[in-house]
Amino acid sequence: MPALKLSLPAGLAQGRLGQTWASLSRVPPLVWLSALLIAFTLWASIAPATLVAYDPLETDLANVLMPFTTEHWLGTDEIGRDLYSRLVHGARESFLIGLLAMLVAIVLALPLGFLGALAPRPVRHGVDRLIEILLGFPTLLVALLFVTLLGQDPLNVAIAVGIGSAPGYARLIRGQTLLVRNSAYVEAAVALGHTRAAILFRHIVPNAIRPLVPITGLGVGKAIVWSSSLSFLGLGVKPPSSEWGALLAAGKGQLLEAPWLLVVPGTAVVLVALSFSTLFHYLQARSEGA
């Protein structure tokens, strides 16, 4: 990717600020774009009202199923609600569900991953088998199972998606922990005479979770897709909420008359998920010194 070329007044080019600026100006434009889109989504989920002209639930029966117009620039649905407003207001739910799902996944995966790498042999093997069995089921299937058990509501969707994606992260943490545990610097710490607890908390845990930071970001995007999928299947968030998956589900009835009702929220999900993966892939590569 070509770097964005930005120049800076000569006096500022030196020093710490100049260095930060120099490294920022090497960030590829696609990454900037992703960051911008995520920032917009974040803003939309904090203060949606500042970004829209209409109430998301306000019906305008004179303008039903309108395609893109200057008034409703992403069109309206079958009872004349402004799609752009609904999309912006739905961002919060989609975003929060994504974040929460990721949180649930990590909270479950951390102990499983550490136990799978560091516990005494019988426990370790038990945990490893459990992770492998769970990995055998597709994420969506596990999420479906749990959302059915827990009942439909946004919180449960997040938990279900979190549980569904946990085994993958557990596996990752386990591998990373094993890598660190067998590293030369851990051996050096042992040889110096540090206690096990000191080595665990000073070397193993911080180094094992380090690569998780960018991967967690990647996961948020994925979790948004999963929870939208659940809503689309009618098992997640229900109308009148304008969570993106719910928008998709509502739009599928009018596929022929008003395709934008499906295309617009679908594109939003894809773009946000893509932005998360672009931005955090970049951060991951940078943290690995690439």
Binding site: S183, A184, Y185, A188, A191, L192, G193, H203
Partner: peptide, 18 residues
């Protein structure tokens, strides 16, 4: 362990990267 110290061939990998 404090009485017996070791130095390896590759010192770099024996330091915590952080």
């Amino acid at each position: 362990r404090g009485k017996i110290s070791v130095v390896y061939q590759d010192p770099y990998s024996s330091f915590d990267p952080r």
